[in-house]
Simulated assay, not measured.
Amino acid sequence: MKKILLSAVALLMLFSCQNDTTEIVPSADSVTKRGCASQEVLAAQMKADPTLALRMNEIEAFTQKAMSSARLVNGKVQIPVVVNVLYRTTAENISLAQIQSQIDVLNKDFNAANSDFTSVPSLFSGVKANVGISFVLDQVIRKSTTKTSWGTTDAMKKTTSGGLAPTSPTTKLNLWVCTIGGGILGYAQFPGGSSSTDGVAIDSKYIGTTGTTTYPYNLGRTATHEVGHWMNLRHIWGDATCGSDLVSDTPTHNTANYGVPAYPHYSTCTGTPVEMTMNYMDYTDDRGMYMFSNGQKSRMSALFVSGGSRASFGI
Results as ranks from 00 to 15, higher is better:
Ser301Phe: 00
Leu246Ala: 05
Arg142Trp: 01
Arg234His: 08
Lys143Asp: 05
Ser38Pro: 13
Gly314Cys: 10
Gln296Pro: 08
Ala48Asn: 10
Ala66Gly: 04
Ala113Arg: 08
Ser68Tyr: 00
Ser168Trp: 00
Gly288Gln: 09
Thr32Pro: 06
Ser248Gln: 08
Ala165Trp: 08
Val31His: 06
Thr179Trp: 03
Arg221Gly: 13
Pro121Gln: 04
Ser298Leu: 04
Ala302Asp: 04
Leu11Trp: 04
Gly163Glu: 02
Asp282Ile: 07
Thr170Phe: 13
Val82Thr: 11
Gln296His: 01
Gly308Ser: 03
Ser244Val: 02
Val247Phe: 00
Gln189Thr: 12
Val136Phe: 12
His235Ile: 05
Ile24His: 14
Ala129Asn: 13
Pro169Arg: 07
Asn74Val: 09
Gly271Tyr: 01
Pro166Phe: 02
Thr146Phe: 10
Leu123Ser: 11
Phe135Thr: 04
Pro50Lys: 01
Gly162Trp: 03
Lys33Thr: 09
Asn74Phe: 03
Ser161Trp: 05
Thr197Val: 14
Thr268Met: 14
Ser144Trp: 11
Ala240Val: 06
Ala165Thr: 14
Ala70Phe: 06
Gly162Leu: 04
Thr209Gly: 11
Val31Asp: 03
Thr51Ile: 02
Ala66Cys: 08
Lys147Leu: 06
Trp230Asn: 15
Asn174Ser: 02
Tyr280His: 13
Thr22Leu: 09
Pro251Phe: 02
Gly163Leu: 03
Ala112Gly: 09
Met156Val: 01
Ser196Ala: 15
Leu233Cys: 12
Asn174Trp: 00
Tyr263Ser: 13
Tyr280Asp: 10
Ala70Glu: 11
Ala256Asp: 12
Lys47Asp: 08
Ala53Val: 14
Val131Asp: 05
Lys65Glu: 09
Ser194Gln: 14
Phe124Ser: 07
Tyr258Trp: 13
Gly186Asp: 07
Tyr283Ser: 06
Phe292Met: 07
Glu23Met: 12
Ser195Thr: 13
Val82Ile: 07
Trp176Asp: 09
Arg287Ser: 14
Leu52Thr: 04
Glu92Cys: 02
Thr270Met: 08
Leu12Cys: 13
Gln18Val: 07
Asn294Ala: 09
Gly199Trp: 00
Ser161Asn: 13
Gly181Ser: 11
Gln64Ala: 12
Asp116Trp: 05
Ser119Thr: 08
Thr21Pro: 01
Thr118Ile: 15
Trp230Ser: 15
Asn111Thr: 02
Ala28Phe: 06
Ile99Pro: 04
His253Gln: 10
Ser30Tyr: 09
Asn130Trp: 00
Gly151Gln: 03
Phe313His: 04
Met13Lys: 14
Ile315Val: 14
